[in-house]
Design a protein around this nucleic acid. Sequence first.
DNA 1: GTATCTGCAAAAGATTTGCAGCAAG
DNA 2: CTTGCTGCAAATCTTTTGCAGATAC
Lengths: 135, 135
Amino acid sequence: MEENLLKSMDLKNTKKRQVILSILKEYNYAMTAEEIYEKTKPLLSMSVSTIYRALHTLSDKNIVIKSIRQDGKSYYQLQKYTHKHHLVCTVCQEVITIEHCPLEELEQKLAVQTGYQITGHSLEFFGICPNCTKK
Amino acid sequence: MEENLLKSMDLKNTKKRQVILSILKEYNYAMTAEEIYEKTKPLLSMSVSTIYRALHTLSDKNIVIKSIRQDGKSYYQLQKYTHKHHLVCTVCQEVITIEHCPLEELEQKLAVQTGYQITGHSLEFFGICPNCTKK
DNA sequence: GTATCTGCAAAAGATTTGCAGCAAG
DNA sequence: CTTGCTGCAAATCTTTTGCAGATAC
């Protein structure tokens, strides 16, 4: 479980980090520090700064990936579940996950053209979901 | 010039808004409010909040497009120059513009699959430029 | 034991807002 | 004139940080 993951990165195996990781695993979508905080509340007490610090450490170790969305907030998710992109409804904020990343080939092409060593990308689509279109 | 653009949107044609628009036009790349502020300094005095307010108004009218990058800051550019994406060097922050947007077809496909009315997307690549790779 | 975590409160950075005065139409 | 624009300072929101006490190993 989470214990080995932490140990393997020379991180101390604390209850709080375990809880954060298990929440990210359970819900399996990118969430904000605030959302994680809300979900930890019933389980144990933890300050928001601890969550930020843990997420920062975990993303340094590439266990967690941070990405900043168009709402200006940082979203965190487990590395192994990443590389999916999202389509976000700008009215109700519903999020649809796009399974296949369409950019891998393009990335290769770009690398050749520019001489850059490409390390990643961020991609997000916006729109209005069928439900909100009706209203 | 900028005058007609403002009038056509029922916005008052002020010197400050003209200056903001002309800077966006001259430099023709997405910049932050802070960068715009620096560039206005030699020209006339204007408070940062005026810049934010003007950019907000202009983006409501779709004259200016706002997008939030992975550094968490908001970047603004003229609508007619948008729809270009960027490759950003994570070491020296150099930015390369990608001329052709590879997502138009994909967007159509997505719209059909999901029933969303797709209004836009954000895409950014990261990497290390040839120069920084050497070091 | 000691290096690493954590809580708290304070600080930071980017952006927004209330209010009173100013300027464009 | 009067509606909308601007400056200033204060407020907001998210995230980071300093420090002192607590915990994992």
